[in-house]
Structure formats: C-alpha cells, structure tokens
Computed example of a mutant assay.
Amino acid sequence: MNDKENRDKNASYEQVDTDISYNAKNDPELDPFEINFREEFHQNRGPHEAFLNEYGVLIGDHVYESEQSPLEQWSNETDPAIMSGDQWVHPYKDVGFQTTENRELFEQGIVPQGYPFMHSDKDVAYKTFQSGTPDEKKNDKK
C-alpha cells in the first residue's frame, strides 16, 4: 500500500478543512437535513460546519455533485474504496440521518432490531433453501 492509499484509508474528520469562506456566510446550526441528536451522540462526532475533504470536495452543503469528486471523474481505473470513509459524510448534516432507523437511534436511543440482517423477501444471514432438517448427506458420509 502506498502512502496516499494509506492516508486515504486512515482519513478522518481531523484531516478536513473547516476554515473556508463558505462557512463565513452559512449558519452551522440545525438545518433541514439535521436531526436532534441525543447528548451522548454529540461527543467526538466531528465538525458541525461544512468542510472541504482532502479531495477538495465540500461536504455538508447539501450539493451532492462536485467537479473534484471521484464520482464525477469515474473511470475503469478508479478504485471504489476512494469514496469510503468519514471524509465523505457530514457528521451532523447527512440525508441518511432522516431514515426511521437513524432517527430512532440518534434521537430516541432505540437500537435498530435488524438482526439477523433481513432482505425484504429472503433471510440472507442463513444458508439458502434450508429444509428445516439436518443435512442428511453430511451424516451419511461419516
């Protein structure tokens, strides 16, 4: 792994730039994409204001297209891992916080009950096509 890949892998909110002119004219307080986080979810969360990540993409302004984004420059050579990590998600102002599960967790403290992971019509956590009886073939081979 080269230095850039290692840096990308370990990138976090500590490496983002919040000292940008955008923040001087925008109120970082509660906005339509933000929820009312319980107190325990405010600790070590990251910046409240919009920030520039290491790719020069503004995160937290609710404009999800940027010329600097790897999504806008995608090719067969682009490693999808480049779009993973905290530097791509705003810790307070992300549209994903509006889901029922996230609102229940972060506003009411109700932990999601999605165990085992369930597909809408398949239980993908277990072997497909279970008969409900022990695998007789395995027992016959002993």
Rank of each mutant, 00 (worst) to 15 (best):
T100H: 05
A24F: 03
S75W: 10
G60T: 01
D31E: 08
E54T: 03
Q87L: 10
N23G: 05
G46S: 04
A50L: 01
E34M: 12
F106W: 15
Q113V: 06
Y115Q: 07
P47E: 11
P91V: 04
I110R: 15
Q98E: 10
F41D: 07
E40Q: 13
K122Q: 12
S21E: 05
S75V: 02
S12Y: 09
V111H: 08
Q113K: 13
N23D: 00
R45G: 01
A81V: 09
E54I: 12
Q68F: 09
E101C: 00
R45W: 03
H42Y: 04
E5Y: 04
S69V: 05
R7T: 06
I82E: 07
D94E: 12
D121S: 15
I20F: 00
L71R: 03
V57K: 04
R38S: 03
N10V: 10
E72G: 09
I110S: 03
I20A: 00
R103I: 09
F41H: 02
I59W: 00
G46F: 02
G114Y: 15
A11C: 07
R103Y: 06
K25N: 03
N102S: 12
E5S: 11
E65G: 02
D94K: 11
P116R: 08
I20P: 01
L105S: 05
K122H: 15
E77C: 00
T18F: 09
Y22R: 04
G60H: 06
N76Q: 08
K9W: 10
E101S: 11
L30S: 13
D121F: 14
V89W: 08
E104M: 11
H42C: 00
Y64T: 03
E72P: 01
P70K: 02
D27C: 05
K25S: 13
E29G: 14
I35W: 01
V89F: 12
S84F: 13
S12H: 03
D19Y: 05
D17M: 12
D86A: 15
Q68S: 02
E39K: 10
D61F: 00
S69M: 08
R7Y: 14
W74F: 08
L52Q: 03
F37I: 05
D121N: 15
T78P: 05
I59C: 01
H119T: 15
V89D: 07
F41C: 03
P70V: 02
E65L: 00
D94M: 06
